[in-house]
Design a protein around this nucleic acid. Structure first.
Lengths: 206, 206, 206, 206
DNA sequence: GATGAATGAGGTTTCATTCAT
DNA sequence: AATGAATGAAACCTCATTCAT
């Protein structure tokens, strides 16, 4: 979609870049940033170390771009869902389902995502975290907007600040994602729409 | 209570050990395991490197013992609260309050705790995580028991497996703890007993 | 004979490897395994420490390969001589001469060889020694075979087990080699074929 | 004999010193100088590290004194035998027997002795070696004197410089000692007076 | 005097990054 | 342009030696 009009040279570059990032994603997710050497990334991606440094100025930046791009993919998908059709309840259900689906697709991604959301920063200065957090906050805002809308329309009870409701819901989802981490392929421990109704029960006006 | 009767030599040893762990806790929590050198721990704790190795056979073990001891302090406190007096609802409220209180006391601890709960393992083999996870699962079991008891007594609606309810509640709490991470001293974003009622609204039979 | 057809890259590698081993041989022979640091080997061989580790996984292995290769060179030469033409007596004389000659070429090698034959093991577990000892025992067996052959042909008196005669002869040679250690270049203290006749006088039937 | 008249304080000191050296002998002989820590010597000798340093200014000196004293014990015994009664042949036989006997008594000692005779020096500067070598040369001189005497008296053939005959005999003995190293307790591989007659056969005038 | 806790220099090894080919 | 051999800073860890108690 994006690359159609690029000259072949550019397209190749992008493809190579993506291959490197894909290899790196697997390694970083499995072993953590500090237990993966550039040598390993070079080996798995089947590029030379020199080539890696053509694409990324250093290891940290490679990692940062990886995290940011994965975050972006995730974020766009979530935004798409949250802006989708359907009433408030339907969109929340869809969010829960879609978030699970993405994680189903790649447990590797969960690990990376969690590491970045919760783990210590790479170097005590924490730059990729900020990028991830910015996107997470955007999602939380959109969730909050849905809650606010629901309240306004009289469909939800006004049970606290919409932002806090968003935090509560999203954290609960994350908890269940973590529960499923051991298994491969990942699955929610139960039907998510059932399980997470629990969370909503108190909200919905009878 | 514990150390009164130990000979002075032993008490000194324990005190020194604690000083090392305290220094290490600060550094590890702030910068993460791989960004802290033994040299730094020696500097901050004001012991020599050699002395660190008298107390801990290697860096990983120093970290592991640190994590396990902090985990234990946290776990005991949570168990105390969950086994405390009061009906099911009171004990849950107390749990929420106490968990927040411990984190208030030391934001450093939150970082360590989260890193261990969610972060990548130290070496891709993940040992201290297991110890932490064991304790978390024990807490979840105890929370689940409270939910089960509440349901049995007819005070809670039977809204899903008690274990899943426990996961949902605890994850929500963690979400709010994370929200408060930036601030120092830490505080729940709102009165926790109000905020978290949200979560419980659906459960409690009107 | 061996390297003619190798691609240049491979030849370079082998040459570098040999340069490292040569530098290491000098140092280890002069100061002993434990008094030589990798830093020193790097310095003397004019490679960086990192490069040493490209060729050898660790210091012990560098040493082991050094010892084994030197042992091999020595062993092959001795086998060549012992399987050479000539009657029993001529081959023994040739062995004595050739052993002396090799040592003449490199006093450094004597030191290494003796250290491995007689010295304490590197780590109390003694692995390179075994390789060296295996080769020494092979030589002793070949010497013994010559003695046995001489006895069988009626040229030597049957003065004890051939293996013991071999031990006696070889030890005597070693004794003279040690005598010459101080000097550079090394020389047998006297004409070896004269000196060592002493040893054989009792054996040869008048 | 030496300590009878010393005040008790002095006697105690000497006894302690000896206990340290005995413990150290065992360790050094088994593992080699560089694989034994002062901590280990302290542990095995049941003295504190501080006490070790009261007796010896540093590790190297402890080792050196150990080697020199063991060398002395050995040297005196050999001198006693070589200056003993009997004709030249009897004294040589007695030397062979006695050297074997000492080694029988302590394989640990063989290891130390061989390490010092043949091994690399401790620090590339090789001081204890010189002490040992001095004593070995003295023994060789005394052996040579016996050979010279035998020749002079017309009992031995004049088969080369007496010193070289001494080297040849002593090296042969060492060779057999090494052969027996694996076993515990040590024994010559055969009756030494038989085996080593081989060496002398050529010398003795029929 | 005896002790052993404390020190820190120095050892081995790893790995991000550079640059000649 | 691509490669990967070479580099060396910096990490972990040991242990001979000192010195306060």
């Amino acid at each position: 979609m994006e690359g159609r009009k690029l000259p072949r040279r550019e397209r190749d570059k992008l493809r190579q870049r993506r291959e490197i990032l894909t290899a790196a994603l697997g390694l970083f997710a499995q072993k953590g940033y500090h237990n993966v050497s550039m040598h390993e990334v070079a080996g798995k991606s089947e590029f030379s170390i020199g080539t890696l440094y053509k694409f990324f100025p250093n290891k940290e930046e490679l990692y940062r771009e990886l995290v940011v791009e994965e975050s972006d993919r995730f974020h766009s998908e979530m935004v798409r869902v949250l802006e989708g059709p359907g009433d408030e309840l339907e969109r929340l259900r869809e969010y829960i389902r879609a978030k699970g689906e993405i994680f189903e697709g790649s447990v590797t991604f969960i690990r990376l995502f969690l590491a970045e959301t919760w783990g210590p920063s790479l170097d005590g200065k924490g730059r990729p975290q900020e990028e991830v957090m910015k996107r997470r906050l955007d999602i939380l805002d959109r969730l909050a907007a849905i809650f606010a809308e629901g309240v306004e329309k009289g469909r939800f009870r006004a049970l606290g600040a919409p932002h806090h409701l968003a935090v509560a819901l999203d954290s609960t989802i994350n908890g269940f994602l973590l529960l499923g981490l051991g298994q491969e392929p990942f699955r929610y421990p139960e039907d998510p729409s059932l399980i997470l109704d629990i969370f909503l029960k108190g909200l919905i006006k009878s």
